[in-house]
C-alpha cells in the first residue's frame, strides 16, 4: 500500500541545551528506510528531545534534524512524510477515537475514509465511538499508532511504543514495525530496554548523556561488542580443565556450580573434540554470548564515570 519515496532521517551535529543542561550534545546519525532502527539509551539520554527536534517541536540550539533533507516545517505534506507517536496519553480524553483520528486526518489533507480502516488496522475498529479517556493505556498506545499511520507516512517515529502494552500487544507492535519497514518505510523507535531492541531492531543507534555511543547494525553490535564463550558441564571437572589446558584452551570453573566450566575463545566443536580425546564424559556443551543488556549497562556506566 505504501508507494512514496524512501526518506532518510538525519541528525547533523545536533545540540540542545536547556540553560546549563545539555540534553543533546553533538549527535550525528542517519536513519535509513527498509529497516527498523532502535534508538537506545537510558532515561534522560536525550532520546525524546532528539525525536522532538526531528518533528520540529523543539528547536535545536545548533545543528539540524532533517527529514528527507528538509526541516519538517519545510516539507509540503508533513503528514505523508512523518507519522509519530511520542506519548500515547497525549490525546483529548473527551474526544472519541474516531473524531480524534478524523481531526488529525483532515489536518493533513487525508480523506476521512482512511479513519475506519486505520482503526481496524490497530484493532480499535469496534471502539471508534468511545472516548479516548476511557481507553486503557494499551488501547491509547494503539490509537497513538493509528494517529501516526493515518497519513500513510514514509517515516514513522515511535517514542517508547512498547510501554504499557500487554505481551500480545508487544508482539503485535513488533510485527507491525517490521511490516512497516518491509514496506520500505523508515522506522525509528526508542526504548531504554535493550531486550526490546534485540527482538525488534535491525539497526541500533545508542545514545547516552546526549552523545552517540554506537550506530551500527544489531548483528555488528553483537559480534563486535560481545564475546562468545562455551559452557560445559562434566562429572570430571578437573579432568576436563586439565585436558583443555593441555590443548591450549583457556577455561575457568564456574564458581556457582560444582560441575560447570566456561571456555573463552573456543567453539563447541573444539571443546567436544578435546573432551573426546581425553575420554572425559560431557553432560552439557553449549555456546553463549554476554547478554546485550550487560553490554549496554557496561557501555553506559563507563560513560557515566568518564563524564
Amino acid at each position: 500500500m505504501h508507494s512514496s519515496n524512501p526518506v532518510i532521517l538525519q541528525a547533523h551535529s545536533l545540540v540542545k541545551r536547556y540553560g546549563r543542561l545539555t540534553a543533546v550534545d553533538g549527535l550525528s546519525f542517519a536513519v535509513r528506510p527498509g529497516v527498523v532502527t532502535g534508538f537506545l539509551g537510558p532515561n534522560g539520554a536525550g532520546k525524546s528531545t532528539t525525536l522532538r527536534m526531528f518533528l520540529g517541536l523543539d528547536r535545536p540550539t545548533s545543528g539540524a534534524a532533517t527529514v528527507g533533507g528538509l526541516r519538517l516545517a519545510e516539507t509540503p505534506h508533513p503528514m505523508r512524510v512523518v507519522g509519530a507517536m511520542l506519548d500515547a496519553r497525549a490525546v483529548h480524553p473527551r474526544r472519541t477515537a474516531g473524531d480524534h483520528l478524523a481531526a488529525v486526518a483532515r489536518a493533513g489533507g487525508v480523506a476521512r475514509s482512511r479513519v475506519a480502516p486505520t482503526l481496524e488496522l490497530v484493532g480499535l475498529g469496534a471502539v471508534a465511538d468511545r472516548r479516548a479517556g476511557d481507553f486503557s493505556l494499551g488501547m491509547k498506545q494503539r490509537l497513538g499508532i493509528a494517529t501516526a499511520l493515518i497519513g500513510d507516512p514514509s517515516v514513522v517515529i515511535f517514542d517508547e511504543p512498547l510501554n504499557g502494552l500487554d505481551p500480545e500487544g508487544i508482539r503485535w507492535a513488533r510485527s507491525l514495525m517490521r511490516d512497516l519497514a518491509a514496506e520500505g518505510r523508515t522506522v525509528l523507535f526508542s526504548s531504554h530496554l535493550m531486550g526490546e531492541m534485540e527482538l525488534t531492531a535491525d539497526h541500533l543507534v545508542v545514545v547516552h548523556h546526549g552523545r552517540l555511543l554506537a550506530d551500527q547494525s544489531l548483528s555488528a553490535f553483537i559480534t563486535e561488542r560481545t564475546t562468545a564463550h562455551v559452557r560445559a558441564r562434566t562429572p570430571d571437572r578437573p579432568g576436563l580443565l586439565q585436558a583443555l589446558s593441555r590443548a591450549g584452551v583457556h577455561a575457568a570453573p564456574d564458581a556457582s556450580s560444582t560441575d560447570a566450566l566456561d571456555v573463552l575463545g573456543s567453539t563447541t566443536d573444539h571443546v567436544g573434540r578435546v573432551a573426546a580425546g581425553a575420554g572425559v564424559e560431557l553432560s552439557e556443551l553449549s555456546s553463549a554470548r554476554d547478554s546485550l543488556e550487560d553490554v549496554f549497562l557496561t557501555m553506559t556506566s563507563t560513560q557515566k564515570e568518564a563524564a
Binding site: L55, G56, L57, L72, A73, P78, M79, V82, A84, L86, D87, R89, A90, V91, H92, P93, V104, A107, G108, T147, G151
Partner: peptide, 17 residues
C-alpha cells in the same frame, strides 16, 4: 486543552507551520 492533554504535539507534527 491541547497543551493540557498533550494533543498539541500531534497537532504541530501534522501542521508544523
Amino acid at each position: 486543552s491541547e497543551y493540557a492533554t498533550g494533543q498539541i504535539v500531534t497537532s504541530l507534527t501534522v501542521a508544523p507551520r
